[in-house]
Amino acid sequence: MAGKNTYRKPSPKPTPKIAKKASVFSYIKKLLYKVVFYFFIISIGSVALFKFLPIPFTWTMMDQKVASIMKGEDSEIHYSWRSYNNVSREMHLAVVAAEDQLFPEHFGFDFKHMQIAYKNNLKGKKVRGASTISQQVAKNVFLWQERSYIRKALEVYFTFLIEIIWGKQRILEVYVNVAEMGKNTFGAEAAAQQYFGISAKNLTREQAAKLAAVLPSPRKWSVTKPGPYVSRRVPKITRQMRALGGTAYIKDLRSF
Rank of each mutant, 00 (worst) to 15 (best):
K65S: 13
A67Q: 09
A67D: 09
A67H: 08
I69T: 15
M70H: 13
M70G: 07
G72M: 03
E73Y: 09
D74Q: 08
D74A: 13
S75A: 15
S75K: 05
S75M: 00
E76L: 11
N85W: 02
R89S: 12
R89I: 03
E90N: 15
L93P: 14
L93Y: 07
V95G: 01
V95E: 03
V96T: 15
A97F: 06
E99N: 12
E99V: 06
L102T: 11
E105L: 15
G108P: 00
F109T: 02
F109V: 07
D110L: 04
K112L: 11
H113P: 01
M114C: 00
I116T: 14
K119F: 10
N120T: 01
N120K: 10
N121A: 10
L122C: 03
L122H: 08
K123Y: 02
G124Y: 09
G124H: 07
K125F: 07
K125N: 12
K126R: 09
V127S: 12
V127K: 05
R128I: 13
A130Y: 00
S131P: 00
S131H: 02
T132R: 06
S134L: 02
Q135E: 10
Q136N: 08
Q136C: 04
Q136H: 09
Q136Y: 09
A138S: 13
K139G: 05
K139Y: 02
K139V: 01
N140P: 00
L143H: 12
L143P: 11
W144Y: 12
W144I: 03
S148N: 11
Y149L: 07
I150N: 05
R151S: 09
K152D: 11
K152N: 02
L154W: 00
E155T: 01
E155M: 00
V156L: 12
Y157A: 06
T159N: 10
F160I: 14
I162W: 07
I162Y: 07
E163I: 11
I164L: 13
I164W: 12
I165V: 11
I165Q: 01
W166N: 09
W166M: 09
G167A: 13
Q169F: 14
I171S: 08
L172Y: 14
V174I: 15
V174D: 12
V174L: 10
Y175P: 09
Y175I: 14
Y175K: 03
Y175S: 06
N177R: 10
A179F: 03
A179N: 10
A179G: 08
M181V: 04
G182E: 07
G182A: 10
K183G: 13
T185S: 13
T185Q: 10
T185M: 11
F186H: 06
F186D: 06
